[in-house]
């Protein structure tokens, strides 16, 4: 009797061990499948992120190349403060980007870096007479219609895909309502590069991009 019981218990134990092993193997297989699916998802996400980073890196490199071709021969000591200390008023055509040496342009995007990139791109852009003339006319009409009476246009310059507009208001209170609705007839995106109190003037510098294009932020 006890021999039979021992045999039964041995068989039962064996069956239990085999069952546990099979369950474990099944779980292992499921885990491997889930792991493979997760790996695939991560691979796809990484590929997407890499593509975005590649685009941004290419844009940054293009900006740096433009910078180097324009300012490479200048004495670095003659340059202004770096990107962390941007000038309130953006540099003009002859000194564009002078506040950001090329080796200080990291690929990540702070607002100051975007401002430097846009001004650099604008300064290096050739003039497309056809678009430049039409854009200037559109902006002039828009500004004439919507600019507060106490405000004025200090500068307006259009190139091939970008226009640089400098507006002078008496105060920030005049600027805000204009910005909310005054430029709605411009068909493209607008980058507000700077808003700064300069003495008695409140100076706003805008970059208006051609319809269907992105300003190089």
């Amino acid at each position: 009797m006890s021999s039979r019981l021992q045999t039964f218990l041995a068989l039962f134990n064996t069956a239990a061990v085999v069952g546990v092993l099979l369950a474990f193997l099944g779980h292992q297989r499921t885990s491997e499948q889930e792991l493979a699916a997760l790996k695939e998802q991560v691979r796809q996400a990484s590929a997407s992120a890499t593509a975005n980073q590649g685009d941004r890196r290419a844009a940054a490199e293009a900006a740096m190349r433009m910078w180097a071709s324009t300012h490479g021969a200048q004495n670095p000591t003659a340059r202004g403060p770096g990107p962390s200390q941007p000038k309130a008023t953006p540099p003009g055509d002859d000194a564009t980007g002078a506040d950001a040496p090329p080796d200080e342009l990291p690929p990540t995007g702070s607002f100051e870096e975007s401002r430097t990139r846009v001004f650099t791109a604008f300064a290096n852009e050739p003039v497309d007479n056809d678009w430049s003339g039409k854009a200037t006319q559109t902006l002039n009409e828009t500004l004439r219609q919507h600019l507060p009476s106490n405000s004025r246009v200090k500068a307006l310059d259009c190139r091939a895909t970008l226009c640089r507009v400098e507006l002078v208001h008496r105060s920030a209170a005049d600027s805000a309502p204009f910005m909310m609705s005054g430029l709605r007839s411009w068909p493209g995106a607008i980058f507000v590069a700077s808003e700064a109190q300069e003495g008695e003037d409140y100076v706003v510098t805008l970059i208006a991009a051609k319809e269907g294009t992105r300003p190089p932020l």
Binding site: M180, P187, I190
Partner: peptide, 18 residues
């Protein structure tokens, strides 16, 4: 409709076309 990126003081930074 239009979309705009705004900064810390609520001013527009990247204004989209209407």
């Amino acid at each position: 409709c239009e979309t705009t990126t705004v900064n810390g003081v609520g001013n527009g930074s990247n204004l989209g076309a209407t």
